[in-house]
Simulated scan of single mutants.
Amino acid sequence: MSAYEFPDGLIEIQRDYEKANAHVEKLVAALPSALDIMTGKPKTTDKQNDELQKAREARLQAQEKRDQHPWLLGVDDQYAARMQLWKAARSSE
């Protein structure tokens, strides 16, 4: 049980951030390693770079939406609140 009562929508905002972050991680995992690139093996394509840039932008927007939420800005211990929000978002999926 959380020590916080989250306002409507904040848990969904956290879930949106988690989805955006997972998408970035998936795209990064599909890229060739730095060693492969240095040794002349497969390089990243423009399409991969564009897709990753867009995914990172979407993740940043989701993070800003969460971090700038008035409720979160108003709590005394933002770190503890974020940790509880993270747990609440994962436990209620």
Score class of each variant (00 low, 15 high):
Gly40Ile: 03
Glu57Cys: 10
Glu5Trp: 01
Gln63Phe: 13
Glu25Ala: 12
Leu31Arg: 14
Arg66His: 07
Tyr79Leu: 05
Trp71Gly: 00
Tyr4His: 05
Asp46Gly: 08
Ala88Cys: 03
Glu57Gly: 15
Ala62Trp: 07
Ser2Cys: 02
Asp76Thr: 04
Glu93Met: 08
Arg82Val: 03
Gln48Pro: 04
Asp76Ala: 06
Gln84Lys: 02
Leu31Glu: 12
Tyr4Asp: 00
Gln61Ala: 15
His23Leu: 14
Leu60Trp: 11
His69Asn: 14
Val75Asn: 01
Ala29Pro: 05
Thr45Arg: 09
Arg59Phe: 00
Ser91Leu: 12
Tyr79His: 04
Arg82Thr: 02
Trp71Ala: 01
Gln78Glu: 06
Thr45Ile: 08
Ala55Met: 09
Met1Asn: 04
Asp67Gln: 05
Asp76Tyr: 00
Arg59Ile: 01
Ala88Gly: 02
Gln14Gly: 04
Lys41Arg: 12
Gln78Gly: 01
Tyr79Val: 05
Thr44Trp: 08
Gln63Met: 15
Ala80Ile: 01
His69Leu: 04
Tyr79Gly: 00
Lys54Ala: 15
Ala62Ile: 10
Gln61Met: 15
Ile13Phe: 02
Asp16Leu: 11
Ile13Asp: 03
Ile37Val: 09
Ala34Pro: 08
Lys41Asn: 08
Glu18Ile: 11
Leu52Gly: 07
Arg56Phe: 07
Val75Ser: 00
Ile11Thr: 14
Ala3Trp: 02
Thr45Val: 07
Ala58Phe: 04
Leu52Asp: 07
Glu93Thr: 09
Lys43Asp: 08
Lys54Asn: 14
Leu72Asn: 00
Ser91Met: 12
Ala88Trp: 02
Leu35Asn: 11
Asp77His: 00
Gly9Leu: 11
Met1Ser: 05
Leu60His: 13
Tyr17Gly: 01
Glu5Arg: 10
Lys26Leu: 15
Asn49Tyr: 11
Leu72Asp: 02
Gly74Phe: 03
Arg82His: 04
Tyr4Ser: 01
Asp76Glu: 07
Asp8Leu: 12
His23Trp: 06
Asn49Lys: 13
Ala58Leu: 12
Lys19Glu: 13
Asp8Met: 10
Pro42Ser: 12
Leu31Gln: 14
Pro70Ala: 09
Leu10Gln: 03
Met83Asn: 04
His23Ala: 12
Pro7Cys: 09
Glu5Asn: 12
Gln78Val: 07
Lys65Trp: 05
Ala80Phe: 01
Arg56Lys: 14
Arg66Lys: 15
Ser33Asp: 08
Glu93Asp: 10
Tyr17Arg: 08
Asn49Thr: 13
Ala55Val: 08
Thr45Asn: 09
Thr45Ala: 09
Ser92Cys: 10
Met1Tyr: 02
Glu57Asn: 13
Met1Thr: 03
Pro7Thr: 08
Pro7Asp: 10
Val75Leu: 01
Thr44Val: 11
Tyr17Cys: 02
Ser91Glu: 14
Leu10Glu: 02
Ser91Lys: 14
Ala89Asn: 03
